[in-house]
Amino acid sequence: EEKRQVKQVAKEKLLEQSPNSKVQVRRVQKQGNTIRVELELRTNGKKENYTVEVERQGNTWTVKRITRT
């Protein structure tokens, strides 16, 4: 359940930055209360990979860091 929520948060964050792209989740890793989500962003056939680190704060998820990989 929490992985599902985190995927959603990570996707939304990337789509905010580039709204007309397609996002696909590649991998989800958990480390303590930080969850790392690896995503693939496609814009006009151009692929970019991103890693989004999401942290739990109380009962909400906040995006800590977005890295292009």
Score class of each variant (00 low, 15 high):
residue 47 K to C: 07
residue 13 K to Y: 13
residue 11 K to G: 03
residue 6 V to Y: 05
residue 29 Q to G: 08
residue 9 V to M: 10
residue 62 T to P: 01
residue 62 T to D: 08
residue 59 N to G: 13
residue 5 Q to W: 09
residue 10 A to L: 07
residue 6 V to A: 15
residue 63 V to N: 00
residue 20 N to K: 05
residue 66 I to H: 01
residue 3 K to S: 13
residue 56 R to C: 07
residue 7 K to G: 15
residue 43 T to V: 05
residue 15 L to Q: 07
residue 15 L to V: 03
residue 30 K to A: 15
residue 64 K to Q: 08
residue 59 N to I: 10
residue 45 G to M: 10
residue 12 E to A: 09
residue 67 T to C: 07
residue 36 R to C: 09
residue 29 Q to N: 12
residue 42 R to P: 00
residue 1 E to A: 08
residue 27 R to P: 01
residue 36 R to Y: 15
residue 68 R to P: 11
residue 69 T to I: 13
residue 1 E to C: 08
residue 53 E to H: 08
residue 37 V to P: 00
residue 6 V to F: 05
residue 52 V to Q: 00
residue 46 K to E: 09
residue 68 R to Q: 13
residue 2 E to K: 03
residue 61 W to L: 11
residue 40 E to F: 09
residue 36 R to V: 13
residue 31 Q to F: 13
residue 33 N to P: 10
residue 49 N to D: 11
residue 65 R to H: 11
residue 45 G to N: 08
residue 27 R to H: 12
residue 29 Q to D: 14
residue 46 K to M: 11
residue 2 E to R: 03
residue 53 E to F: 09
residue 65 R to V: 12
residue 69 T to P: 06
residue 8 Q to G: 04
residue 16 E to Y: 02
residue 18 S to A: 08
residue 35 I to F: 15
residue 47 K to E: 06
residue 56 R to D: 03
residue 4 R to W: 12
residue 42 R to C: 07
residue 59 N to A: 10
residue 13 K to C: 07
residue 52 V to L: 05
residue 13 K to L: 08
residue 34 T to R: 07
residue 45 G to Q: 11
residue 19 P to E: 03
residue 58 G to R: 06
residue 58 G to A: 10
residue 54 V to T: 03
residue 20 N to D: 10
residue 63 V to L: 03
residue 47 K to N: 10
residue 51 T to E: 15
residue 24 Q to S: 14
residue 23 V to G: 01
residue 16 E to D: 03
residue 20 N to F: 07
residue 55 E to R: 05
residue 46 K to Y: 12
residue 34 T to H: 09
residue 44 N to L: 11
residue 12 E to F: 03
residue 34 T to W: 05
residue 2 E to L: 12
residue 23 V to A: 10
residue 67 T to E: 10
residue 11 K to P: 01
residue 28 V to S: 03
residue 19 P to I: 02
residue 13 K to Q: 03
residue 34 T to L: 10
residue 68 R to K: 13
residue 53 E to M: 09
residue 24 Q to K: 15
residue 60 T to D: 14
residue 8 Q to Y: 03
residue 36 R to L: 15
residue 26 R to P: 01
residue 51 T to M: 11
residue 3 K to R: 14
residue 35 I to Y: 15
residue 25 V to I: 08
residue 63 V to Y: 01
residue 9 V to A: 07
residue 11 K to H: 03
residue 4 R to H: 10
residue 19 P to F: 03
residue 11 K to N: 02
residue 42 R to I: 14
residue 34 T to Q: 05
residue 14 L to R: 01
residue 28 V to Y: 14
residue 64 K to P: 03
residue 55 E to Q: 09
residue 41 L to H: 01
residue 67 T to P: 01
residue 49 N to Y: 14
residue 23 V to I: 07
residue 26 R to Q: 11
residue 6 V to K: 01
residue 59 N to F: 09
residue 56 R to T: 04
residue 24 Q to C: 08
residue 68 R to Y: 06
residue 23 V to P: 03
residue 1 E to P: 03
residue 4 R to Q: 10
residue 45 G to K: 06
residue 54 V to D: 00
residue 52 V to W: 00
residue 17 Q to A: 07
residue 1 E to R: 06
residue 67 T to S: 11
residue 57 Q to N: 10
residue 15 L to C: 03
residue 45 G to C: 06
residue 21 S to R: 01
residue 58 G to H: 11
residue 65 R to D: 14
residue 48 E to Q: 06
residue 43 T to S: 10
residue 49 N to A: 08
residue 34 T to F: 09
residue 46 K to H: 11
residue 25 V to H: 02
residue 50 Y to Q: 00
residue 19 P to L: 02
residue 59 N to M: 14
residue 1 E to L: 06
residue 1 E to N: 07
residue 13 K to P: 02
residue 5 Q to P: 03
residue 18 S to W: 14
residue 31 Q to V: 14
residue 56 R to M: 09
residue 68 R to L: 15
residue 32 G to M: 04
residue 64 K to I: 15
residue 65 R to Y: 08
residue 7 K to F: 15
residue 13 K to V: 15
residue 2 E to D: 12
residue 60 T to H: 11
residue 27 R to D: 08
residue 26 R to S: 11
residue 40 E to N: 06
residue 69 T to V: 11
residue 8 Q to T: 06
residue 52 V to M: 04
residue 62 T to M: 12
residue 8 Q to W: 04
residue 57 Q to C: 07
residue 17 Q to Y: 10
residue 55 E to G: 07
residue 61 W to D: 00
residue 63 V to F: 03
residue 22 K to V: 13
residue 29 Q to I: 15
residue 9 V to I: 14
residue 58 G to S: 09
residue 67 T to G: 06
residue 15 L to D: 02
residue 50 Y to W: 13
residue 48 E to G: 03
residue 31 Q to S: 10
residue 57 Q to T: 12
residue 40 E to C: 06
residue 25 V to S: 02
residue 45 G to Y: 11
residue 55 E to Y: 09
residue 29 Q to P: 00
residue 67 T to K: 07
residue 60 T to R: 07
residue 53 E to T: 08
residue 60 T to Y: 09
residue 64 K to D: 03
residue 1 E to K: 08
residue 19 P to G: 03
residue 14 L to A: 05
residue 3 K to M: 15
residue 45 G to H: 09
residue 34 T to P: 03
residue 7 K to S: 15
residue 2 E to A: 07
residue 32 G to Y: 05
residue 61 W to T: 02
residue 68 R to H: 08
residue 49 N to C: 09
residue 6 V to C: 05
residue 17 Q to V: 11
residue 43 T to M: 06
residue 50 Y to C: 05
residue 3 K to A: 15
residue 1 E to Y: 08
residue 18 S to L: 05
residue 57 Q to L: 11
residue 55 E to H: 09
residue 10 A to F: 02
residue 2 E to S: 05
residue 51 T to K: 05
residue 57 Q to H: 10
residue 35 I to C: 09
residue 7 K to R: 09
residue 37 V to W: 01
residue 62 T to K: 10
residue 69 T to A: 09
residue 8 Q to C: 04
residue 66 I to K: 01
residue 33 N to S: 11
residue 68 R to A: 09
residue 34 T to S: 09
residue 15 L to H: 03
residue 5 Q to D: 10
residue 26 R to F: 10
residue 65 R to M: 09
residue 57 Q to R: 07
residue 68 R to D: 05
residue 9 V to W: 04
residue 67 T to R: 07
residue 46 K to P: 04
residue 39 L to M: 09
residue 53 E to W: 12
residue 48 E to T: 05
residue 25 V to P: 02
residue 12 E to P: 00
residue 15 L to A: 03
residue 55 E to L: 06
residue 48 E to K: 05
residue 12 E to C: 04
residue 48 E to R: 04
residue 28 V to F: 09
residue 21 S to W: 02
residue 15 L to W: 03
residue 67 T to Y: 15
residue 19 P to D: 01
residue 6 V to W: 11
residue 40 E to M: 12
residue 25 V to Y: 04
residue 1 E to G: 07
residue 6 V to E: 02
residue 16 E to P: 01
residue 4 R to V: 05
residue 42 R to A: 09
residue 32 G to E: 06
residue 53 E to A: 06
residue 34 T to V: 13
residue 33 N to W: 05
residue 38 E to T: 13
residue 33 N to Q: 11
residue 43 T to F: 08
residue 53 E to D: 12
residue 10 A to P: 00
residue 67 T to F: 11
residue 18 S to E: 07
residue 58 G to W: 06
residue 52 V to D: 00
residue 2 E to F: 06
residue 27 R to N: 10
residue 66 I to R: 00
residue 17 Q to L: 15
residue 44 N to E: 13
residue 7 K to Q: 15
residue 8 Q to D: 11
residue 6 V to I: 14
residue 22 K to F: 14
residue 9 V to C: 04
residue 50 Y to A: 07
residue 24 Q to Y: 15
residue 37 V to L: 05
residue 69 T to Y: 12
residue 27 R to T: 08
residue 53 E to L: 13
residue 6 V to S: 05
residue 43 T to A: 11
residue 33 N to A: 11
residue 45 G to F: 13
residue 18 S to T: 05
residue 55 E to W: 08
residue 5 Q to N: 06
residue 62 T to I: 12
residue 63 V to R: 00
residue 24 Q to W: 14
residue 49 N to G: 10
residue 21 S to C: 02
residue 61 W to R: 00
residue 38 E to D: 13
residue 12 E to T: 07
residue 22 K to W: 08
residue 68 R to C: 07
residue 54 V to M: 07
residue 64 K to C: 11
residue 65 R to W: 06
residue 16 E to T: 07
residue 1 E to V: 06
residue 34 T to G: 06
residue 31 Q to E: 14
residue 33 N to V: 06
residue 18 S to D: 05
residue 64 K to R: 13
residue 61 W to S: 02
